[in-house]
Structures are given as C-alpha cells and as structure tokens.
C-alpha cells in the first residue's frame, strides 16, 4: 500500500525535515507515526498526500510514486485516499451535509446517490442527526468526526490522519479511536500521525517513531 525508500525532505532554508526514511505498510495495516512536534510527522503526512514531493528517494502510495507523479495525476491519487488534517479544514460557509457532499461532487456523483452516501458516512460517525447544522455549532469532537466522515465518504482503502485527537478531551478522543478501529476492522489501511499515548494503550499497534527526521525502532 505504501512503500518509502530513502526518502529525504529538505526545505529551502536547509532544514532537513526527513532524512533517508524507509518503510513499508501493507494493505489493511494500522500504523502509527509518533514523535515530538517537529520530528517530521506532518512532513511525512504531506508527502503521503502528495501535497509536497520528496527532495530525494521514492515514496509510492497505491503503487504510484509521489516523487515522479504528474501534476495532473495528483487529484486522482487523492481521491483514493481519505485525508484527515490536523486543522480539519472544514468549510464553515455550508452545512454539515454539504461538507460531506464536497468530495462526491468532485468525482461527479449524481445528487441523489451522493446524498445517500453522505448520510451513510455521517451515520458512521454519529452525526446523522446534525446534517443540517453549521460546523461552527459543533463541538470540537463533532467537528473532528465530521472531518472523518468527509474523508471516508469516497470509501478510500487508505486513511491518513494527522493528529486527529489533538486538542480533544479524552472522551471525544475515545470516540474517534472507536471510529478508526471500526474502519480498520473492515480492512481499511490506517496511517495515523499522533503523539497521543491513548492510542498505544488501546491498540498496541505498529509504531513508526520519528526523531529529528530519522526513523527509530520500527519493529516490523
């Protein structure tokens, strides 16, 4: 599903965010990327989502090398991913339902089918009764669940989440964990960047630990 080979990301100021990272993630795996802030978690997330390209090395997602991807091919790669951003990137000018409809309108699904799928996604994250609400009226945990619903509405086989429980109280975080587990159980590959210890305790998952751009102890 994901194959990284000697990936280095250097920013113009000479900062090396990632240094010679190599790892493999199989289909259906659940992998956590941990490390202090500034360790390179978000950089790795941005590379996997093809927001940025590696300075050197290759990183393949769904068999496509991000480093060599044509600009025009990036949207089609992203449609196969579910992306959950640290800052959620919800649109506050439209309802909860319309936020979830956005990915479906991008792929051109007919309205009736799109609404059916969007409601199913909202149902999975427990927000079906809030579909008419404005995102600003949702709690922090609800906003994060809305972001998850938008990420999974296209039924991606790979879900990437950057700090999905940052700034959430433990009960809200716990709900998010349960939702992720249910996706993992139906075979979705899950890659979560987090420094939240709760995850480790709950799942004892495979962990990729980053420290100053280098990969430490990958047990796999």
């Amino acid at each position: 599903m994901i194959s990284a080979n000697a990936v280095t990301k250097r920013y113009p100021q000479g900062i090396e965010a990632l240094k010679e990272i190599s790892f493999e993630i199989e289909d259906g795996e659940m992998v956590f990327i941990t490390g202090h802030s500034g360790a390179g978690k978000s950089t790795l997330f941005r590379l996997l989502a093809a927001v940025e390209r590696p300075t050197s090395g290759s990183i393949a997602v769904n068999g496509q090398n991000i480093a060599a991807l044509r600009r025009g091919a990036i949207p089609y790669l992203r449609r196969k991913l579910g992306l959950i951003f640290q800052d959620q990137k919800l649109l506050f000018d439209r309802s909860v339902l319309d936020n979830v409809l956005l990915p479906l309108s991008i792929v051109g699904l007919p309205a009736r089918e799109a609404i059916r799928r969007a409601r199913a996604a909202l149902d999975k994250v427990g927000l079906l009764d809030r579909e008419r609400a404005q995102p600003i009226a949702l709690s922090g945990g609800e906003q994060q669940r809305l972001a998850i619903a938008r990420a999974v509405v296209n039924r991606p086989s790979l879900l990437l989440a950057d700090e999905p429980t940052a700034n959430l109280d433990s009960e809200s975080a716990s709900q998010i964990l349960d939702i992720f587990r249910s996706f993992h159980q139906v075979g979705v590959t899950l890659v979560v960047a987090t420094h939240d210890a709760q995850w480790m305790a709950r799942f004892s998952p495979r962990v990729l630990r980053l420290e100053r751009g280098r990969l430490l102890g990958d047990p796999a």
Binding site: A49, V51, G72, P75, Y76, L77, R78, R79, L83, F85, K89, L91, F92, D93, L102, P103, I106, V107, R150, A151, N154
Partner: peptide, 16 residues
C-alpha cells in the same frame, strides 16, 4: 480560497 484549497486536497482537478 478555503473551499478551493480543501477541494484540491481531496481530489479536485484544476478543471473542476
């Protein structure tokens, strides 16, 4: 700008 940014992040083509 926000809508455009999000749309592109979740797979919108330039044409879209």
């Amino acid at each position: 700008a926000a809508e455009i940014e999000v749309s592109r992040l979740i797979g919108a083509t330039d044409a879209f």
